[in-house]
Write a protein that binds this DNA or RNA. Structure first.
Lengths: 343, 343
DNA sequence: CAAGTTCGCTAAACTGATTTAGCACGAGCA
DNA sequence: TGCTCGTGCTAAATCAGTTTAGCGAACTTG
């Protein structure tokens, strides 16, 4: 690629000046005493020749590559969290940077490999992202440079690394608030309190935080969660069975909060099957804003994971070396049609 | 990042040899006459010091960066086509390369910017990907190097560029074959023949190819498509209304082929609403293998877009300078529960 | 035994940029 | 006239590798 690119020397020659002069002019260095005419000639020459600097060469000297590594366990290809990349990509572009991505697939060997490959390429910083919000241990090689955790936290590092996570607790509050505003209070159930089959207690911090928010908001309203159902996992089938059991009780809930949209998807099926309808008989709120949320009938109101905003934030933190510790990004309520006053 | 990395000079010094010797040994150059002992010493020194070459420096001389650009209009972040990246990422890793990604969002200015940024970084090749299979024009700047189109074709270039696309026509045949095997033949309908609101005739080559395959396979079986329904777009709501009209006819279809899974999702809703069931009353086959295909009840049989395989293939073509013209990647039938013999 | 080969290795050039140190010239001043 | 100072610019070093050209010693060969 790019065999006979124009070099700085070419520009200098055409401008009748030295490489030094050309370099200084093109970098807009202050304090140089080159004449206005010299500036003009260099710009003209660069323009004429279509000069573009060779970043590899530059970075050799400056140790800046205008490149950020985006290393994730699996997020890169995970439909639905691609928003993280998109946000990062946008922010990077705005700041004239570029993203080098790699996936570890959770494999430590791949991880070593990926991180080495990135460091070999002299990246300016590393964004280390996880698919599900969780704790992870940061490879020591990274600690030398600028690192930001994305959608993950860590407790392994002595001085906290900067990290970017969704504000799940606030989201939990918001879900409840939306229900309270519609008159629900005493018969609000939660589906998916935790994932029973989850063996790693560090995973699913999200669930804990959301639940805290939910309970907190209800407590402030002088109420408590009516029923909480645990699920083996957060898949549609589990939402389905959970909702079925809830609907069979004599005092069935007037509203349910599902811990994610796939649970809600299953819950919808159970409601339909019971001859009831959302939101007339049961209101539903949920989390994530998976694309199916919009496709369901009626549209599912859900607290959107702010993937793009998180990706942007991570880039900012990597480049500006932002504050250590967690950055919470708020989750917005996508208001659709699944919430109405209780029957 | 990486302030005090070990350099080749360090390794050479520790091995008591010249940089030249160290370089040659580490690169495994043939025909050099360095002694076995010298080899040993260099390897040992590199190992001891944890030497890693600076790729920027190397590429300055060799013009190889072991980096591939992945430029897409929007695919990178599109949930569901992230498989393209994942495949590319895997293939790249296997060949010790790394991916630099950028998105143009269809904006020509962004596109220029992205491509310049990539070329400035001396990438070894460019994968130019599109979200939906379609024709596109390749920016001239790219033609100088190694380019592969992914999920897109072009007719603008004089000598055809290599490109990688799914084999939609074969997939159309496979969809019909699966139905024929189950005894359907004369009452097979197609939902989503084309997208009415599609203004760009070049888009949606996929639809055309799939339809050709469908018609071809039916023709060979001595039949024809029973009914074809067009849709404004390929969204659930359109699948829903299409299926509704089909079911209202006296000779309603025994099977329908939906042009994608979202249409099928809507079609399922219409079937349920009519008090019928899939696959007892109507069989459904579809295309794409969107994640919802697995979540539906019963599971939707669908021809999976081979995103990962395509991504891999693109990397291979970029690196090996593979044959010009299109590479068709087969789509596999994901057999689930939506096909059964006609009632 | 001189000339030519082969062996084992290295000095130095080169890649394309940035950056440091400093040169030549003219003006101002005593 | 001699000295300093400011102006406008450049030579050369540097970054970390790869590659070319070639050197000195040992070994063949006629």
């Amino acid at each position: 690629m790019a065999h006979d690119r124009v070099t700085l020397a070419d520009v200098a020659r055409r401008a009748g000046l030295s490489k030094t002069a050309a370099s200084m002019v093109l970098n807009g260095r202050e304090g140089t005493r080159l004449s206005a005419e010299a500036h003009q000639r260099v710009f003209q020459a660069a323009e004429d020749l279509g000069y573009r600097p060779n970043i590899a060469a530059r970075s050799l000297r400056t140790r800046k590559t205008a490149t950020i590594a985006f290393v994730s366990d699996i997020v890169a290809t995970t439909r639905f969290a691609g928003g993280l990349i998109r946000g990062a990509l946008d922010a990077a572009r705005e700041r004239d940077h570029v993203l080098l991505i790699a996936e570890t697939q959770g494999d430590p060997a791949f991880e070593r490999h990926a991180i080495d490959a990135m460091l070999d390429r002299q990246v300016d910083g590393v964004i280390y992202a996880a698919m599900a919000t969780r704790r992870l241990t940061v490879p020591p090689a990274l600690l030398a440079g600028s690192v930001v955790l994305l959608n993950a936290t860590t407790d392994a590092s002595p001085d906290d690394l900067p990290c970017v996570v969704p504000d799940d607790q606030l989201a939990g509050r918001a879900a409840v608030t939306a229900l309270l505003e519609n008159g629900h209070r005493d018969r609000i159930a939660v589906i998916g309190r935790n994932r029973l089959k989850e063996d790693d207690p560090q995973v699913s911090l999200a669930a804990t935080a959301r639940l805290e928010g939910i309970r907190g908001a209800l407590a402030e309203a002088g109420a408590a969660v009516h029923r909480e159902v645990s699920c083996p996992d957060w898949l549609p089938e589990h939402g389905y069975t959970a909702m079925r059991t809830l609907l069979r009780k004599p005092d069935r809930p007037t509203a349910v909060v599902c811990m994610n949209d796939r649970l809600a998807f299953g819950a919808y099926q159970a409601v339909a099957e019971a001859g009831l309808s959302v939101p007339r008989d049961v209101s539903v709120v949920s989390f994530d804003d998976d694309p199916i949320a919009a496709w369901l009938h009626p549209g599912l109101s859900t607290l959107a994971l702010p993937h793009e905003a998180m990706g942007r934030r991570a880039v900012d933190l990597v480049l500006d070396g932002g504050g250590a510790g967690p950055t919470l990004v708020p989750m917005d309520l996508r208001r659709r049609k699944s919430i109405a006053p209780p029957p």
